[in-house]
Each structure stands twice: as structure tokens, then as C-alpha cells.
């Protein structure tokens, strides 16, 4: 029982997850700055930002739904914290044993977006309203591709029967080799990277917020102080969660039985994924809203379906 509480509050969830996620976001800012030839902030910049935001005054708009406006951030934040407690980290943390945690993952991954939608909707700003509708469409666009990728993996692992246990997916890959090096899963891998960028709303999918020329800060526009800090932590935790999901789905390989070396390997893999996100952030411009949705509805969905068909064919023994 006490081990569970430590797992939830200190490692890998809770304190460690929040600090590590914030440092990851700062590292991404540094990488983008370096790719643009700038120096960039210090590696703990986002932690300072959060501390400062908690010390600031919180303003609530006159027309906002007070209660919803204040507590919407908690929704996504708690969802992400629970998710990190649930997910296994290959070689480091075994996660909560359950046979259907892939479905829980799919549900909980939508929580931050839903909390943005609730919070933005309650803030009674036209910018937030536009941003919320975009966020909703964006979520619909990438979520379908993500679900097909998850089903593909579940079918592949169960050899025709769906296996929805993340633990089993990790174990299967540890025995048979990571999906990253399996050609049948490559279309799904590319689709997953696109979905990752869309879910994190990094360029080229910086459509719903931080889109200064278009809708300013989107659903965050009316937020200040502590709720804003919670939103920032939520988006940072989402980055961490998605990088763990990436490692579970495609690259759960471990180096040795030693926990510490595996932990360093986990951090290295996270930073490699972060490097990809940083490079796309620095080299791509953002899509216009309609272009972004069209792209998301076409490319990742088709790639994921190609992968699904390949996997089904291999299960039937045709490839």
C-alpha cells in the first residue's frame, strides 16, 4: 500500500513527473533556441515560471462561470498524474497491473484536451470560443488515428486477439524485438509521430493555442495565476506521458537488468524524442486551421490503416 502511495506521489508520478516534465519543456525551448542560433533559457526556466505563476494574482472574468473556470485545470492535471501512475516505464517501473489499461490510456489521454475545452468554454472570451472549437476538431482528427494505432498494436501482440494490457505489450516487444524495427509497424510509427505533434500542439499543428497571429493564446487567454500554472504543468505532463507511450508502443527495449542504467536509458530515449519535436518545431511553420485538419484526417489515418492491414495480413500468414 505504501509503495503505491510512493509511486503515485514521488516516483514515477507526482513530484518526479512534474519536475522532469517541466525540465523537458525547458530543454525543448533550449533546443529550439539553439537551432535558431540563440542561447535560450536556463534548463529550469519552466519551474521558475510555474513558481512565479502560483505567486501571481488570479483574475476571473466577469461573465465567466466561476466554479468551472477555476477547477477546469484540475481535471486535466489530475488525469495526467493518474496516467503516469498507471503506465509502465519499461525496465524502471512495472505500472499498475490491469488487463485493459490500453483503453484507460485512450480515455485519459483525452482529458487535458477536454479540460482545455471546458476551461476555455467557461471563460466567455470569443478567442477562447474559436480556440475551443479548433481544439475539439483537432482532438477528433488525431484521436481516431491514435485509436487505430493502439488497436493495431493490440492485435499484433495478441496474434489476432486484442491484448489491451500495456504490461503484455512491453513484454512481447522485449521478447520479439521492438516494433520500431519491424517494417510492418513503420507506417503506424510515422502516424504516431504526427499524432504526437498534433496532441502536443507543436508546429506544424500549433492551431488552437500559442498561435499569436491568429487567436492569441487561445483557450488560455483569460487564465492567470494558479490555474494557468496548472495548465502549463498539464501540457508538460502530456509531453512526458506521450513520450512514455511512445516507448511502450514502439521502443521498450532495455539495456540491462540494472534499474539505474535502465532509468538513464529511459531519459535518453525521452530526450531523443524531444530532439525530434524540437527539430520539427524549429523547421516547420504552422498549418492554417483547415489545412491542419485536412492533413490530420488524411495522412496519419491512412498510414495507421496501412499498418493495420499489414498486421492483419501477417496474422493470417499471407506476408
Amino acid at each position: 500500500m505504501s509503495a503505491n502511495i510512493i509511486n503515485f506521489l514521488i516516483f514515477p508520478g507526482g513530484v518526479f513527473a512534474v519536475l522532469f516534465a517541466l525540465i523537458l519543456v525547458s530543454l525543448e525551448r533550449i533546443l529550439v533556441a539553439r537551432l535558431q542560433g540563440r542561447i535560450g533559457p536556463v534548463f529550469y526556466q519552466n519551474i521558475i515560471d510555474i513558481v512565479k505563476l502560483f505567486n501571481k494574482e488570479t483574475l476571473i472574468p466577469k461573465d465567466a462561470k466561476d466554479f468551472v473556470f477555476k477547477f477546469a485545470p484540475l481535471f486535466g492535471f489530475s488525469g495526467m498524474l493518474v496516467l503516469i501512475y498507471f503506465l509502465p516505464i519499461p525496465g524502471v517501473y512495472s505500472g499498475v497491473k490491469g488487463d485493459y489499461d490500453l483503453i484507460i490510456l485512450i480515455y485519459f489521454l483525452a482529458l487535458p484536451a477536454i479540460s482545455y475545452i471546458i476551461g476555455g468554454g467557461a471563460s466567455s472570451s470569443p478567442y477562447a470560443a474559436i480556440s475551443v472549437s479548433r481544439e475539439l476538431k483537432l482532438m477528433l482528427a488525431y484521436e481516431s488515428a491514435f485509436i487505430i494505432i493502439a488497436i493495431t498494436i493490440a492485435l499484433y501482440v495478441g496474434d489476432g486477439k486484442g491484448v489491451f494490457s500495456l504490461k503484455k505489450i512491453v513484454d512481447y516487444q522485449l521478447q520479439h524485438g521492438a516494433f520500431l524495427f519491424d517494417w510492418k509497424m513503420w507506417p503506424a510509427f510515422v502516424a504516431f509521430l504526427i499524432v504526437l505533434l498534433a496532441a502536443l500542439e507543436k508546429p506544424p499543428f500549433e492551431i488552437a493555442h500559442h498561435n499569436d497571429a491568429d487567436i492569441m493564446d487561445g483557450y488560455l487567454i483569460e487564465y492567470s495565476g494558479a490555474p494557468l500554472a496548472l495548465f502549463e504543468i498539464t501540457s508538460a505532463l502530456k509531453l512526458l506521458v506521450l513520450s512514455i507511450v511512445f516507448q511502450i508502443f514502439f521502443w521498450p527495449s532495455t539495456l540491462s537488468g540494472d534499474l539505474f542504467i535502465n532509468f538513464l536509458w529511459f531519459i535518453l530515449k525521452t530526450i531523443i524524442l524531444l530532439g525530434f519535436i524540437g527539430i520539427t518545431h524549429a523547421t516547420f511553420a504552422s498549418y492554417r486551421a483547415d489545412q491542419g485538419f485536412k492533413f490530420l484526417l488524411k495522412v496519419p489515418l491512412v498510414l495507421a490503416i496501412i499498418s493495420l492491414i499489414l498486421v492483419l495480413l501477417s496474422i493470417k500468414g499471407l506476408i
Binding site: A33, R34, L35, Q36, G37, R38, I39, G40, I279, A282, T283, F284
Partner: peptide
Amino acid sequence: MSGFLKIAIRNLLKGPVTD
């Protein structure tokens, strides 16, 4: 896009030019 990537990598290797 490849042009941007080339510039970005060059910036990374050359180091920042900030005053």
C-alpha cells in the same frame, strides 16, 4: 523545408550568435 533544416543544423553546430 530541407533548406530550413540545413540552416537549423548549421546553427546548432556553429553555436549561438547572441550578443
